[in-house]
């Protein structure tokens, strides 16, 4: 531990969370790290990946490990804004309107397949994410603290979906692309699944799932999470680090193949996320490794290729690689 700011207690707290998730979910250490970064920096996280990569299990495990309230909403085409935000209902007994708060009033909201909902639902959610407030009727309610939205979308199946526009994608601090596990991780997943067994309940029996393994006991206290969040803001960011960030953001705006480069919000997100990553890795200052490790998750969903680059078959990932390679050569 190189820092005098971060106590051993805080380091143990973060390590314990990662270990707890590792007991349930195999091989998603980077996603756990990104989720913690989003949580500690009050950002939001968009996960892109195929179904069956344990996204829901991961978020569920993290929420229980940190003792956070967790809700999951499956986005569909017929979902309404009131299904997420809540609504005012007429109570027939009292003849008065009663506020029914929607699932957004939670600490950790998993918005599953966010691109399946109509734009007005996406807009309502993203507005609440930005303002951390919801207005129902004439009353405005603050969302619980901490509040984190983890949205998922399937990158392949595009029929019947509404692609999030760049302006709304920009509100997600990180967009992480989940990959398939390695061969060793896949074997471990299968081994663990074989050991799940059967649960007898109410005179019947049912095959156990990974969700049954998630422990309800929380690690640490809410104060630990508050302390970790505060500690992120104590992480030192040097002038030289700022120069690195500005250089990369600037390169994205000047690249000939990009129609849309990174916004200033991207630079802010890189610094916020780098601070949280430094804390997670036990440092009290951000270093270029943080920047380069987070560049894809922060920048890739914020850039848009030009028509000519698309026609030439280039991909945003290739262009970002060019930008990062050019910055060190």
């Amino acid at each position: 531990m190189s820092s005098s700011i971060q106590s051993d207690h805080l380091a143990n707290y973060i390590k314990a969370i990662r270990d707890r998730v590792g007991e349930i979910v195999v091989g998603q250490d980077v996603v756990v790290e990104r989720t913690l970064i989003a949580l500690l920096t009050s950002g939001h996280l968009l996960l892109e990946g195929m179904p069956g990569l344990a996204k829901t299990l991961l978020v569920n495990t993290i929420s229980k490990a940190i003792h956070l309230d967790f809700r999951r909403v499956q986005f569909t085409i017929d979902l309404l804004p009131s299904d997420i935000l809540g609504t005012e209902m007429l109570d027939q007994k009292t003849s008065k309107f009663r506020t029914h708060k929607g699932p957004i009033f939670t600490n950790l909201l998993l918005a599953d397949e966010i691109n399946r909902a109509a734009p007005k639902v996406q807009g309502a959610l993203l507005e609440a994410m930005q303002e951390r407030k919801v207005t129902l009727g004439s009353n405005t309610f603050s969302l619980p603290t901490p509040f984190l939205v983890i949205a998922t979308q399937n990158p392949i199946e595009q029929s019947g979906t509404f692609e999030l526009p760049e302006a709304q994608l920009d509100r997600f601090m990180l967009c992480h692309r989940l990959g398939y596990p390695t061969v060793e991780e896949e074997e471990e997943i299968l081994r663990r699944n074989l050991k799940l067994g059967v649960e007898k309940k109410d005179g019947g029996a049912v095959a156990r799932t990974e969700f049954d393994l998630v422990s309800d006991s929380a690690i640490g206290t809410p104060e630990d999470l508050v302390a970790a969040t505060e500690a992120v803001h104590q992480i030192h960011v040097s002038e030289v680090f700022l120069k690195h960030v500005v250089d990369i953001v600037e390169r994205s705006r000047k690249h000939p193949d990009l129609e849309l480069g990174c916004s200033p919000r991207a630079g802010i997100s890189i610094i916020k996320a780098s601070r949280a990553r430094a804390l997670i890795h036990g440092r009290d200052y951000a270093i270029p490794e943080d920047l380069f490790a987070l560049a894809e998750d922060v920048m890739l969903h914020r850039i848009r290729l030009s028509y000519e680059a698309l026609a030439e078959g280039k991909t945003p990932k290739q262009i970002l690689k060019q930008i990062l390679d050019a910055s060190i050569s």
Partner: peptide, 21 residues
């Protein structure tokens, strides 16, 4: 700092194919 990283990335063959991160 960036150029030194680039220098080592070019010098060490095992690093040449890796991403900057």
């Amino acid at each position: 700092e960036r150029l030194i990283t680039g220098h080592w990335k070019q010098s060490a063959p095992e690093l040449a194919s890796l991403s900057p991160s």
